[in-house]
């Protein structure tokens, strides 16, 4: 196992609400090395909020606390905005769900990529332009010269997401958080976008946090999987061990997936139990794959 890029211990995200405090993330701990870490859970399980908390994007009145939140051994918990800004993009970056909304509609693709690069690397427009073209090539976009001049509405979803990946990887971050990066895409281009992302992350030796609700996808794509439920990690597994999951929630999730090789008349319905919310956390931090 490589040394860990990111250490998270007892991360909590809290929002004040009328009924008292709402705990979106309740004590999440994990380590991320140069690996692909899947985070799986249903809507509202706190998986996206975990990603945003790491990036320091939880806006007041939301509150982030943790025993430890370290990037390369350096604490990044509640850093002043100015210092956090330097990290964002350049060391940790994020790709979001739908490129239709996550790209600025009135700026050209080229300008948006160049902006991301120049913000951290500086340099002239020409250098940034070269870099942007290089990144577009890296995400296998044909005719990058022309795509640079297009606006987001002129590209397809799959292409938009590849542009997003090119943009977010332009300043060479160490960690990429991919928040449901393929959920808004057409099934036919999902695999392609994922393999491009996978290739880039691997070549650059980056750490990837892959947030998804798609258990199958995560098990195929990631090295390790965290299963989240109600703001907590209920189980950590090597992706290859997913079928050996012991937590009833994970088992329930797995058995509710239809299988071609073993068809059943009725898929079982996931029966949630109150005890899962606050049961003992089963965290295995060994990270051995």
């Amino acid at each position: 196992m490589t040394q860990s890029l990111l250490q998270v211990r007892n991360l909590r995200v809290t929002f004040p609400s009328r009924q008292g405090e709402f705990h979106a993330v309740r004590g999440v701990s994990f380590d991320l090395g140069r690996e692909r870490l899947g985070v799986v859970g249903e809507s509202g399980s706190g998986k996206s909020m975990t990603g945003r908390a790491i990036l320091g994007l939880v806006r007041p009145p939301g509150r982030v606390t943790a025993d430890r939140l370290e990037l390369d051994g350096e604490s990044i918990l509640n850093l002043p905005e100015r210092r956090m800004r330097k990290l964002r993009g350049s060391r940790i970056s994020m790709v979001m769900q739908d490129p239709k909304f996550s790209l600025n509609p009135v700026m050209t693709v080229g300008d948006q990529i160049m902006e991301a690069y120049r913000l951290h690397a500086g340099g002239s427009r020409d250098i940034a332009r070269q870099k942007a073209l290089e990144m577009l090539n890296a995400v296998q976009i044909r005719d990058p010269e022309r795509v640079m001049k297009t606006y987001p509405h002129e590209v397809s979803g799959g292409m938009g997401q590849r542009i997003m990946i090119a943009m977010m990887l332009a300043p060479d971050p160490q960690i990429l958080i991919a928040d449901e990066p393929t959920s808004a895409l057409d099934v036919s281009v999902r695999g392609e976008v994922l393999s491009i992302m996978d290739g880039l992350v691997r070549d650059r030796g980056m750490g990837l946090i892959f947030i998804s609700h798609d258990l199958n996808l995560v098990s195929k794509f990631c090295d390790r999987v965290l299963i989240m439920y109600a703001g907590r990690i209920v189980e950590t597994l090597a992706a290859s061990d997913l079928h050996n999951a012991r937590h009833p929630y994970t088992q329930g999730l797995l058995s509710s997936l239809p299988r071609l090789d073993a068809p059943v008349k009725r898929l079982p319905v996931l029966q949630r139990e109150e005890s899962w919310r606050d049961g003992e956390l089963q965290i295995k931090l060994s990270g051995k794959i």
Binding site: Q140, I141, R142, D143, R146, T150, E154, V155, S156, G158, M159, R162, D186, V187, S188, V189, R190, G191, E192, L194, S195, D198, K220, F221
Partner: peptide
Amino acid sequence: MIDTNTGGQGPIPPAS
């Protein structure tokens, strides 16, 4: 690990 040939990239033909 992931099959790469699941779809075209839907390029816009260059404007003639």
